[in-house]
């Protein structure tokens, strides 16, 4: 599992550039599914058919599970005569976090981010910053052009039972779906494991994949911030206290039936869990639940510190709890 996470978080895949991540996941899941397809936007949809006919209903319940493949990044908007590159953000990138970071482009060229001289540090904005890819003058062969996209460059590191890396948001969710597929022997539900694109730009992959699948139930697996660091915003979610079950965020009030399904599965299997109320932010479950005539939806969240930085940190025990919870929920017949 740890190596799956490493492979996924170290891969390059800012929003709209998810191809490499998709190839990796495709290789991991192909043999474990009845069918695997890529839709027009680039979502990877892995289908596992129900192991037996439904009881008391015409067809098995269709469950859509979603984790997004994309990560935040930067996009080059202008290159000056000395080769310094101005950039904009792809997804939310905090200027203070980006300052002094090493990034890597799709062609594997590295770059570093720095800033103009500022009178006051609080004036730091992305448009006062630039990327230096090490070229002396424009066109000396960096291969980086206007419109090219870079991601943070960071290897995964272990800190005791915790892992820190870029792109835990949301490759950890992808890893949890992959691991669930590995462990899940049978399910009486039709399962769509969807690895989505462009979540960081407004959960856009989930919009189209949910419309196409038209599921009965939606469950997203994504990260959520914690309130357990010094003087953090008030939140009851802590690292190491188990899977977080979402109650609400900006784009979803979890359907009470789905939330209760997750809570009772965790309680009956003795899986540690915590309830999550998030004031700002959203996941793929937002657009999934407003698809067509409505899809009851919920979220399993991985408690994560320092989200949208190159040192997003998760607890392996929490990750394990998320996998066990998902496996437990899917192995029973779901009716909502």
């Amino acid at each position: 599992m740890k190596e799956t996470i490493r492979t996924l978080v170290e891969a390059y895949g800012p929003s709209g550039n998810e191809e490499r991540v998709r190839e990796i996941i495709m290789g991991m899941v192909r043999e474990m599914c009845d069918s695997v397809r890529v839709d027009t936007l680039g979502n990877l949809i892995a289908f596992r058919r129900a192991s037996r006919p439904a009881t008391g209903r015409p067809a098995p319940t269709k469950i859509m599970l979603a984790a997004h493949m994309d990560e935040i990044g930067i996009i080059v908007t202008h290159i000056d005569e000395k080769g310094f590159m101005r950039f904009s953000n792809v997804g939310y990138v905090d200027p203070f976090t980006a300052l002094g970071q090493r990034v890597v482009f799709g062609n594997e060229r590295a770059g570093v981010i720095w800033m103009e001289k500022l009178e006051k540090m609080k004036d730091l904005r992305l448009d006062k910053m630039f990327v230096d890819v090490g070229q002396g003058a424009a066109g000396d062969g960096s291969g980086v052009s206007v419109g090219d996209v870079a991601a943070f460059d960071r290897k995964m590191t272990e800190m005791g039972n915790r892992l820190t890396a870029k792109a835990m948001d949301d490759r950890i969710g992808c890893a949890i779906l992959v691991e669930t597929l590995r462990r899940l022997r049978e399910s009486p539900n039709d399962l769509y494991f969807v690895f989505t694109v462009q979540e960081e730009l407004g959960a856009r992959g989930a919009v189209t994949s949910a419309f196409g699948i038209c599921p009965d139930v939606g469950i997203a697996v994504d990260v959520t911030p914690t309130g357990d660091t010094p003087k953090a915003a008030i939140s009851d979610v802590s690292l190491g206290k188990g899977a977080a079950i979402k109650v609400k965020d900006s784009y979803l009030v979890a359907h009470p039936a789905v939330r209760n399904l997750l809570v009772s599965a965790a309680e009956s299997a003795g899986i540690p869990f915590q309830m999550e109320v998030l004031e700002r932010g959203g996941t793929d479950a937002g657009p999934i639940h407003t698809t067509r005539e409505g899809v009851p939806s919920g979220v399993i969240s991985v408690p994560t510190r320092y989200i949208h930085t190159p040192c997003e940190t998760v607890d392996l025990g929490d990750v394990e709890a998320c996998v066990r919870l998902l496996e437990k929920v899917l192995s029973n017949e779901v009716s909502v």
């Binding site: 407003t290 067509r292 409505g294």
Partner: peptide, 16 residues
């Protein structure tokens, strides 16, 4: 439902 959190009930009921 859920008008106050983003007109979500209207979205899906109107669709149907």
């Amino acid at each position: 439902i859920q008008e106050e959190t983003g007109l979500r009930g209207a979205m899906v009921s109107t669709y149907g």
